[in-house]
Amino acid sequence: MTIEQNQKATREKTLATTYLELHRFGQNGDYDRALKAANRILHMAPQEEKALHCKIVCLIQQSKFNEALQTMQRNSNLSRSFYFEKAYCQYRQNQTTQALETLEQVEELDFRLKELKAQIFYRLERFSEAHEIYHDIIKNSQDDYTDERETNLGAVLVQLSDESQKDM
């Protein structure tokens, strides 16, 4: 092996080891250590999209929404597909209209984008659109959050009936 090949192999091994650490910290919910691991990877390899993705998730879990948004902005090339994370940060920063605009760039919404979109509509007081989404996701999802989701649907229905009373 040449010295160069050797260096490359070492670097790849270090990356894989750090990713393994990152994975474990993430599974344990240790976002402080996970963030450090993600930063180590990005220091070695600034183009690692997955490390950046994890970094954003860590920042969100630490409620650092503004920092997450800025980090995505600084790395707009790598973070192009982070629609969910971007819209979620905007939602939490009360940039609700912008959050909706972010989601409108996605052609086909997966379940978590739909969930977020329903919350955004609720906050924008567009209750009938929120209602439509909840109707869809409650019918088509089976996870641990059924009760909470039905609570949210209930809130939407209360607001809808308030609206129709005001109209009378």
């Binding site: 990152l22 994975h23 993430g26 993705h53 994890c54 998730v57 969100i60 879990q61 969910f84 994370e85 979620y88 939602y91 379940f111 978590r112 969930e115 977020l116 919350q119 609720y122 959050y145 909470e148 989701r149 609570t151 949210n152 209930g154 809130a155 209360v158 607001q159």
Partner: peptide
Amino acid sequence: PLFYDLALNFVGF
């Protein structure tokens, strides 16, 4: 009315 932030549960690696 009570309203949960369910989307946060889906923020993951």
